[in-house]
Structures are given as C-alpha cells and as structure tokens.
C-alpha cells in the first residue's frame, strides 16, 4: 500500500511534467497503470473543458450568422459548419498540424504586432484550437436548429412588451434557444470529451511523453502486450467523466428551466448519436 502511495506521488502529475521523469519500464503494477492513466486524464479534461467553454460563444455567433439574411454573413458561417462537420476530426488534426508547422517560426507580423506561432505546433495550443473550432461547428448546428424552433408566439409577445434588438435576443431568443438545444448540447459535450483522446494519435507529438489517458493506456498495452488491463481502466475513467458531464449539464438545465413546474425540469438523458 505504501508502495502505491509512492507511485501516486511520483506519477500523479507526470502528464503535466511534475514528478518522476522516466516512465515505468518493467514490472508494471496496477497502481502504476491507474495513476498514470488518471494523470493523463488531466489533459482530456483540459482540452474538453476549455474547447467547450470557448466554443460555446463562437457557436452562438455562428448559429446567428447562419440564420442571418445577409448572404455575406450567412455563407461563411454555412461553410465553416460544413467543413468542420463534414470531415473527420482526425484529418483536421493532421491538416492543422502541418499548417502550423509551416507557419514562420519567428511569428507573423500583423499591424506591427508579432503574433507568436511557435506554440501552435504543440498539442496544448494547436490541438486545443482545432477542438475549439470543431466543437463550435457542431454546437452551432445544434443552436441553429434550436433557433429555428423558438416559438413565434414568444417572439411576438416580446415585441408586444416593447422588447427589441439586443434586449429581445438577450432575454427571450437566447434563453429559449439554449433551453431547446440543451439535451443535444449535452450530447455534444460528451462526444467532445471523447474526441480529445485523438489528440496524441494524430500528428501532435506528446512532448517528453506527456500525453493523455489513452496515450498512457496505449503505452502500457504496447509494453505488456495485454490490452485487458489498461483499456478497461481508461474506459472506467471515461465513464466517470461522462457521468460528471451529464451531472453538470443537468444542473445547468435545471437552472435554465427554473420557471417550469418541477417534473419538467429534469431531462431524461437519452444518449443520442448526433455527431
């Protein structure tokens, strides 16, 4: 047991560069596998949480753009959604990595300011950027669908109360859109966390063997030639992660629907395969 504590203190934050530098090479214990794979999970949470939070705002903007009447706004938004939803994330990662590698190392001059580009070839920034755009496109499609389903009566009532423009959007259209989109958006969030496992298998190198949960599971499976231990461990961690996401999202759902009678607040979460 004390041995396991030592392993935990050595490897718990290995994936972000703290603790023991060398990965275990032989006599792999269960404790090592649990610790390292759990350590890698930090990356999955990092990628998923930030991409989701940032993507939310871009998605709202793109959904509104897609619903706009002006083709100069609508067309680019439609293309953005089409390109990111129509191609595999795996290929997007490869393509983006090659693109980032080609950027000049010393940065790009924009209006006298130098935009740093070096870190885009690193997973923490480059892959995050791709995930951000990807989830924004998928969420935008969900929000766009919800935007079209906002009841006309609600909007007319808002106008009758004298709400226009930004106020109408902020108080009526946007909250209703979110309420309608929320179950599907929960689903998208889950898929996004799952998609983060692709990062270190798609061009972006795991610098100093700092990888995500699947990276370490794959490491153990390669070394022990036994897939029956590390992969179920990743699966277990991801089930926990998925359950937490569902929990968090249903809390927000309850807040969004707080004006409704109590039984309508709960979403019976039925996982959909909309990605």
């Amino acid at each position: 047991m004390t041995e396991c504590w030592e392993t935990i203190s050595a490897y718990a934050f290995r994936s972000i560069g703290f603790g023991e530098r060398l990965l275990p090479r032989e006599d792999f214990t269960l404790c090592q596998q649990f610790t390292l794979i759990g350590s890698g999970l930090l990356w999955n949470i990092y990628f998923g949480a930030i991409a989701l939070a940032a993507g939310f705002f871009l998605a709202t903007a793109v959904a509104l753009g897609k619903a706009a009447r002006n083709p100069l706004i609508r067309k680019p938004c439609e293309w953005f959604v089409f390109v990111f939803r129509g191609s595999p994330l795996f290929i997007q990662f490869f393509f983006a990595y090659q693109l980032f590698v080609l950027l000049p190392r010393e940065g790009i001059e924009i209006f006298g300011l130098t935009a740093e580009t070096r870190w885009l070839t690193r997973a923490w920034a480059g892959a995050l950027f791709v995930l951000f755009l990807n989830t924004a496109a998928y969420s935008a499609e969900i929000f766009y669908g919800a935007l079209g389903s906002v009841p006309k009566g609600d909007l007319e009532a808002a106008e009758a109360y004298g709400l226009t423009g930004w106020q109408k959007f902020r108080r009526i259209t946007w909250p209703t859109m979110l309420r309608l989109a929320w179950p599907a958006y929960t689903n998208e969030a889950i898929f996004l966390f799952h998609a983060t496992t692709l990062v270190f298998f798609s061009g972006f190198p795991a610098w100093q063997q700092r990888g995500d949960a699947l990276y370490y599971a794959n490491y153990f499976a390669d070394k022990t030639f036994n897939p029956f231990v590390p992969y179920p461990i990743v699966a277990g961690y991801f089930i926990l992660l998925t359950l937490s996401v569902i929990g968090l999202f249903s809390l927000i759902n309850r807040r969004l629907n707080r004006h409704l009678p109590s039984e309508a607040k709960r979403i019976r979460y039925r996982p959909q395969l909309i990605r």
């Binding site: 966390f193 799952h194 998609a195 699947l214 599971a217 991801f238």
Partner: peptide, 10 residues
C-alpha cells in the same frame, strides 16, 4: 460512456 477509439485499439 467510452470513446470509440478506445474500443478500436482494444
């Protein structure tokens, strides 16, 4: 609850 790629590799 589990990413499909985990199943592929497994």
């Amino acid at each position: 609850g589990v990413p499909d790629i985990v199943f592929f590799l497994f």
